[in-house]
Design a protein around this nucleic acid. Structure first.
Lengths: 235, 235
DNA sequence: GCTCACCTCGAACAGTGTGCGAGTAGTATC
DNA sequence: GATACTACTCGCACACTGTTCGAGGTGAGC
């Protein structure tokens, strides 16, 4: 799971060939299917090979190793985030944030990969480019373009990763949200003694209508706050 | 790497015993050492056992499985983020952000774990509690307390995870930053044709003084923007 | 001295990523 | 049409993983 020479799939020349039988795209598609269906732990070269009616080691002709496969598969996630080409910077940032969030929701296994695996694939790059264009057009100057854009990306990732990770680990248990609350309740009570403020937080969640809606509101709250803050740095 | 019944180490009663020979704390300490020294992939039950002069399976008396061990080890990371008890909300938020960032820098393996593994350990909870207290005292009301705090945490994680992941994967290759740039340059040039804005971004990094300093500035830029935005919600 | 809970650990199982080398199939060249 | 060559497939094997099981030891309380 680690690369000695720094090499991304994207920094190597692609092998041009006859493309008969297995193809890289086919492998990547099958991998995404497998991941979506069974999660990250279920992705093994053998299983993936089997799903394609091929031997596990055949994959190694098309892909250097599993890490590379994962880079490829991650760019497939970024394919879900498409940005308008000539919109207001706030709108573009908003579209990015929600699209990115949705993309990770659509592929929950990506939550544990997304900041960690280098994002140099075509889809990731075009998204970056469009987002950056919006900040340039807005009037950010010099390195501020990069700073502002990075801030939006950071917030989006940082908000989405834990949310999706939590939801999918909850789903893996098969328990409902209320069941979990019942399990956590006593621990929380014991622990809240020395941590008075946490109780308040816990209560506010407990009395909350729909946790899914609440989380979306939380996401929006932070996002608009950040965009407001960035907006004041424009003049 | 997945739990069927939702159970965190922290939701189970701890086994009380004689605590002779191996102890849970000892195991966790050794695990952190191993992780710091050799990274996430190097942590195996057998290696950890060996480091403690014990058999691999002995560990399973003190820890249910590797996932639990990782939860324990992660709370050790949070032990690095200690917050003042009665400071201004902006200062507390700032201290949190920088301390969290530093904690992940100190334990780079945590970058791929940090939003993904449930953070219910004592250290994580006290940090949350202190941070939340600051937002309450500041005058945020109701659910906004939670929203504002979550925003700061989200930004911090989202900014830190990719940064640390990148730095440590770079370090793993042994190449320098300029060497990497040389490797990426041609790819970037080819790719930048359809993505005009990326070139600008790339340039601004290239001409930049010290990338470490630049990244810290970027972190600060986004953080103050966010805090400004949150501040206006206080009226 | 006996009992019993606490604790250790070797063997074994099912699984992993991947290197190697043998084997096949389709195309290009003579 | 035969030969050569490249593109590709894949079985075997290796070293390693997390974890279960059951047999053993070891110390405290009676």
């Amino acid at each position: 799971m680690s690369a000695k020479p720094f090499s991304s799939v994207w920094t190597r020349e692609r092998k041009g060939g006859r493309e008969q039988g297995l193809s890289r795209d086919q492998i990547v598609r099958a991998a995404v299917e497998l991941l979506d269906a069974e999660g990250l732990d279920a992705l093994s070269m053998r299983k993936l090979g089997a799903r394609l009616g091929a031997g596990a080691t055949s994959l190694y002709w098309h892909v250097a190793n599993k890490d590379e496969l994962i880079e490829l598969v991650m760019d497939e996630v970024y394919s879900g985030v498409v940005l308008p080409e000539a919109a207001d910077w706030r709108e573009t940032a908003g579209v990015f944030a929600y699209a990115m969030r949705q993309a990770v929701f659509d592929h929950p296994w990506s939550a544990s990969l997304i900041g960690v695996v280098p994002a140099l694939g075509p889809n990731a790059l075009t998204a970056s480019d469009r987002l950056m264009g919006a900040f340039i057009r807005a009037g950010f100057e010099g390195i501020d373009v990069d700073y502002a854009m990075t801030a939006v990306v950071s917030y989006t990732l940082g908000a989405t990763i834990p949310e999706v990770a939590f939801l999918s680990s909850l789903e893996a248990t098969g328990k409902s949200m209320t069941e979990l609350q019942a399990a956590v309740d006593p621990v929380m009570a014991k622990v809240a003694a020395d941590r008075p403020n946490l109780l308040e937080r816990y209560r506010s969640y407990a009395k909350d209508f729909d946790p899914l809606v609440a989380r979306r509101l939380a996401f929006d709250f932070g996002l608009t706050a950040l965009l407001d803050g960035l907006g004041t740095r424009l003049r």
